[in-house]
Design a protein around this nucleic acid. Structure first.
Lengths: 166, 166
DNA sequence: CATTTCTTTTAAAATATTTTGAAATTACAA
DNA sequence: TTGTAATTTCAAAATATTTTAAAAGAAATG
């Protein structure tokens, strides 16, 4: 496999994986492209390389910045903006963990706490409460795991732990 | 909040959360409904309670069975099929972890291994390879975490570990 | 078997999401 | 300022996904 083939395969694979996780293809492919780019790219570059429109590029570049996965880079003497991805992959993972926790886990924990506290006067209500308590446990585990990723400055500690389960 | 309100809120919340994770609303709501149902439900019941068509119900019930999250239950003397959800929430979590690992992580690991092994003769190719190696690490961590969930028969061990990171 | 009851399949419709392209806006330089 | 290059916005178009409804298929019953 040549480098060009590998690059295409990576961008394509990343785009496909992303859709399974509720992330749109353009955004994932943009991220993939910037991840492997040795230099910062201008909007025009990504438009051309991924064959997407200016509007699409602009919106998804912004979303990626909101996620903290890419940065704007200003080049002296250049008017247009360049974009560069965060290259420390563990930092990327921490960032994604942080955002997903904030956007998805935290709100769910709150709803579950609310639902847990109805009074269980009927059998149905009792069963319901049992399920809510169980779910709180699992969601709490997910929350802790994301926290583990977020807080692990080094990853050897996590590595040590995970050996236990192999 | 009454039990009925809580029930509706749960089904609705679960449906919303699911779409953020690339799972369709009907499937998530079906699962939510069955999770909190104290008795097995027939197709008609879920059609009525969620206001969805027979075909929709049929397809998503099958998908849920494929994920190992619900079971068919045959009642003596009854011709139609009833469905009951796996009620052990940790078992549900293990099942989801197992399936996502099989469907999403394992294939990505293979692609990354393939892409890691191109020869890095140019600076671009070298950068590319560096990223692939990094990603392998992160994906490997995800794989290990899912394995931890899958293999943890008891969850106290995981609980012990996670205290370290709090 | 034929009939009834229930389930599954599938093509079309409905809905939701993503992408485009052009206009509006912004930012900078002259 | 004014003009130009670049970015952002947003309504419309394209695409993808989900849902429906009706037909086909199975399974049980008499």
């Amino acid at each position: 496999m040549t480098f060009e083939e590998a690059k295409d395969k990576f961008i394509h694979t990343w785009g496909t994986l992303a859709t399974q996780w509720g992330i749109n293809r353009s955004m994932a492919q943009l991220h993939a492209l910037l991840l492997i780019a040795p230099e910062a790219l201008a909007t025009e570059d990504v438009m051309e390389q991924l064959q997407i429109s200016r509007g699409n590029a602009s919106m998804n570049l912004r979303d990626l910045m909101d996620w903290g996965l890419i940065y704007k880079q200003l080049k002296p003497g250049e008017r247009r903006e360049f974009f560069i991805a965060e290259k420390d992959i563990w930092k990327v993972a921490r960032q994604v963990a942080k955002e997903r926790r904030r956007r998805e886990i935290t709100p769910v924990i709150e709803v579950l706490n609310e639902l847990k506290s109805i009074d269980a006067d009927t059998p149905e209500a009792h069963e319901f409460q049992r399920v809510m308590v169980g779910l709180s446990g699992v969601v709490g585990f997910a929350d802790n795991t994301l926290n583990a990723v977020i807080k692990a400055e080094e990853n050897w500690l996590m590595g040590q732990f995970l050996k236990v389960f192999r």
